[in-house]
Design a protein around this nucleic acid. Sequence first.
DNA 1: AAATCGGGGTC
DNA 2: GACCCAGATTT
Length: 343
Amino acid sequence: MSADQTADLRTALLAWFDRQGRDLPWRQGPEGRRDPYRAWVAEVLLQQTQVARGLGYYHNFLTAFPSVQDLAAAPLDDVLKAWEGCGYYARARNLHRAAQVIAQQGFPEAYGGWLALPGVGPYTAAALSSLTLNEACAVNDGNVRRVLARLHAEPQPTPRWVQAQADALLDPARPGAWNEAVMDLGATICTPKSPQCGACPLSPWCAGRASAQPTAYPAPKARPVVQEVRAVAVLIGTPQQAVLEQRAGGLLGGLWGLPTQPYDPARPGAQAQALRDLCARLPATPGPLLGEVTHAMTHRRVIWQVYAATGGPHPTDVRGAPLSRLDHKALSLAQARADSLFT
DNA sequence: AAATCGGGGTC
DNA sequence: GACCCAGATTT
């Protein structure tokens, strides 16, 4: 693309953005000098999370933690509670860790400083340095990848290729606005399934549109097979006051939930054995089966047999604890059974 | 480079 | 059910 074409393309997209860009709550303040706390919270929240869903969490989070000092001083459980249901909980743990650093050292003053914070990778560092420091760093997210793949009719855009294209196209005069403009275009016009090429300010330069098959770019990514995982879970107490354990490790790490024990459904008797093992560990006495809950995650499908049990450690208050959707489903199963006794 | 990590929206 | 979402981190 010639320098003249690049200049025209930039003008067209920024004009569209100034007119049609989304009005979002974290976009307050001067262009290139946004409030770093709000921008940072929003960028982390929006990692692999659609804007429409992020809006509610953003409001809750800022209400709970109005400043980075509030966030740094808060217990991790409170931070996870504000993140409850949003997924990818490492984001909340990293946000809390990074807040300790920022409370001590202040907000980063360059791309490298952002990148050094836990939970901030190349995308987020580029976004935040352009939005809060006016640095000419091009973001590379799912929207940018799709927009640029279509613009150049590239079916297999590698991360390196996308970054090079994004760097070349970025308008150095308005880096923050440019980044937001490309993402807004990808989210509202150049959508994955049914792009509105007729309304796109880039259509004069777009090879994907010229091909009449814009959705062929980029080619869909191959997805791994979803694995089925089974476990028994026990409810000791009531849906309001129950024995909860804090989950460790990567999956749902830091959240609380019902004690569980996985088993191999292909092995006869494995489920009953898992229930015995679980109750022996607590220790508790197994009771009746309350029901089954299933929960779909991106890369696995979880099925729990939920049993009542008695004994065990002292039940704790469920209300204040950060729980996964799966645990909420298990608890409402027990609630539904309790309700049915009175109808 | 490939796996792992949630939950929901859209078609 | 397939595919995706303002990706980061670990293996």
